[in-house]
Design a protein around this nucleic acid. Structure first.
Lengths: 128, 128
DNA sequence: ATTTGTGGTTACCTACTAGTAACCAGAACA
DNA sequence: TGTTCTGGTTACTAGTAGGTAACCACAAAT
């Protein structure tokens, strides 16, 4: 998921993109916000992600110092994830992206299927 | 390359990530900056990208209103790409990412190969 | 007559991403 | 006794991203 060629570049921007330049990581960071969230909740909130991919992404985010993993020695197990200082510092950037999208996004023509069974939102991401 | 499930979400952030949430698009936007650049130059500057993928990404960026394509009716052909207002508005976000990375990035242990032949930069992205 | 330059497009193939389903521990509860 | 709960891991598989190489038009230069 990380792009090693990008991560080994001597351009700091290229390295940053190599680290967080995919769709899952910004989503996860955004969902985390400044909360502490358990694995199961994360899986329920992040749209369309499988447990396997979520595990992988969380592992990479931890390796890159964006979040902290806190595992309680209980049964059944409990693991909480929260952003590190580095991860928290990334949140404002996500806010700018939201604002940018709201301001410039071209209006979408909704598909007919979006209305076929009334207002279905089950497949949609919650709005934070 | 775009993620349709993300793009059809009713969360503006999710839609934004569905549109520009990969590694190529931020790179291309960053390389474009506020210049007007030809396809060949773009291909030479954006690190590691193939002509095929560059074509695809540029097409999507144009469809999403982030850039403008100006084709001159000459032979050999000449095509220039430049950011639209929407694309230009995205540049500050990339600046924040650069700053964020410089501030928080964990120091990498350089590989020996990085030094083997002196300061080689041919595989690296230019620093803007 | 042939080569060069430009901005693609296309077919083909490989390598990786990501989904699915099964499985695990071990305590609590019915 | 069996089921449930949690946070994974693993093996297998489908789908797709992306690389490579060949090809195109046609003018100008060699």
């Amino acid at each position: 998921m990380r792009d090693d060629r990008f991560c080994n570049s001597n351009c700091p921007f290229t390295r940053a993109i190599g680290t967080i330049g995919n769709k899952w990581k910004p989503m996860i960071i955004n969902v985390l916000g400044n909360r502490s969230i358990r694995f199961g909740q994360l899986h329920a909130i992040v749209p369309h992600i499988s447990r396997k991919v979520l595990t992988e992404q969380l592992k990479e985010l931890e390796e890159d110092g964006l979040l902290e993993r806190l595992a309680y020695k209980e049964l059944p197990p409990r693991v909480e994830y929260k952003l590190s200082e580095k991860g928290l510092a990334f949140l404002p950037i996500l806010e700018y992206i939201k604002e940018w999208n709201l301001k410039y996004e071209v209006a979408l023509i909704p598909k007919e299927t979006d209305y076929q069974y009334g207002s279905k939102t089950k497949d949609d991401a919650p709005v934070f």
